[in-house]
Computed example of a mutant assay.
Amino acid sequence: MKVIGAGFGRTGTRSLQAALERLGFGPCYHMSTVIAEPYRVRQWLDVGEGRSRDWDTLFAGFGSAVDWPASAYWRELAAHYPDAKVVLTVRDPARWYDSVSATIFRGVTERSGPLPLRRRVIQWLVARRAPDFALFPQMTRATFVDPVFGGRVDDRDHVIEVFQRHIAEVKAEIPAERLLVFEAADGWEPLCAFLGVPVPGEPYPRANERDAFRRKRPRRLARLILRGR
């Protein structure tokens, strides 16, 4: 592991994943990796529920990791990989909350009440045909929704406070020479200088995470259901 992303999801982590892979620090582990390979859901559930913390097995073959659930364990990863550099992605707290509440947290808050019949049917089909992926909601709660936010993801003030406290803690605990505080708008230059690599002759990646999130989950569920036939 050469680079550890300590930033919360929806802080430009998808773009950072693409950037790190372009710079030679890939493959880069991201939440999309878990969704693409459902057996990893159970691995993270074991981590979240305290049964396993075998980081070398979990990240075997990866040169970097960003986004949740990995970023929820930035302290443990920074200690386990002492030579890895840490990139803390940040963005305006209010805009970040609007983004995360409309994507990742939306599914969590929706599950607090009765689901529409269509959603219940989909969940039943996924549970039958893709049992590992059916544990995805439980995994997100166990790894970051509950331990990081106390389950209070519908409380805007609380979530923003946690976001700001997280940034302060990473800055305080990771030595300055090992840490880059980074926004996607900063582009290649600070990231490349920090990692000691040349600046590519192309624009910094700009992934629209919110749109990708909305497209990704329905398509992934459909493939899992069809694959089980």
Rank of each mutant, 00 (worst) to 15 (best):
G150I: 08
M139I: 06
R111W: 11
Y73P: 02
D92H: 05
V148P: 02
P116F: 08
A65C: 13
G63A: 05
L135R: 15
T109E: 12
F149R: 02
V159I: 07
I122G: 03
P69L: 07
D132G: 12
A134G: 04
R91F: 02
M139A: 09
D155Y: 00
F133S: 13
F149T: 10
D157S: 14
Y73G: 10
R128V: 09
G61H: 00
G113M: 03
Q138H: 14
D92C: 02
Y97L: 09
V108S: 12
L117Q: 09
V100T: 13
P93E: 04
L77G: 01
P116M: 10
G61W: 03
Q138T: 15
A65D: 11
R118L: 06
Q164R: 14
R118C: 04
R141C: 13
V159K: 08
R95V: 11
F105P: 02
A84H: 08
A84V: 00
S64L: 07
E110Q: 15
P131M: 14
V145A: 03
F133E: 11
A79F: 04
G63Q: 00
R156P: 07
D92V: 08
V126D: 10
G151Q: 11
V87M: 09
R120D: 01
R152A: 14
Q123K: 13
T103E: 08
T109N: 01
F62V: 06
H158L: 03
Y73R: 06
S99W: 03
F62M: 03
F144H: 12
V126K: 02
V86S: 01
R95W: 03
P93D: 02
L88C: 03
E76F: 05
L135Q: 15
A142E: 05
E110W: 14
Q138R: 15
W68E: 08
G107L: 10
V126M: 12
G113P: 07
Y81L: 07
W68L: 06
T103P: 04
F144I: 00
H80N: 00
G150P: 07
P82Y: 09
W96T: 02
F136N: 14
V86L: 08
F105S: 09
G61I: 00
W74S: 05
Q138V: 14
P82H: 06
A72G: 02
V86G: 05
D83I: 01
Y81M: 03
Y73H: 11
A142V: 10
T140I: 15
Y81H: 05
R91K: 01
P114W: 07
R129S: 12
D92N: 13
E161H: 14
V121A: 11
V90I: 15
I122F: 04
A130T: 12
R128L: 15
R106S: 13
P114K: 10
D157K: 13
A102I: 10
R119N: 11
R120S: 03
M139F: 04
V159Y: 06
T109G: 10
V153N: 08
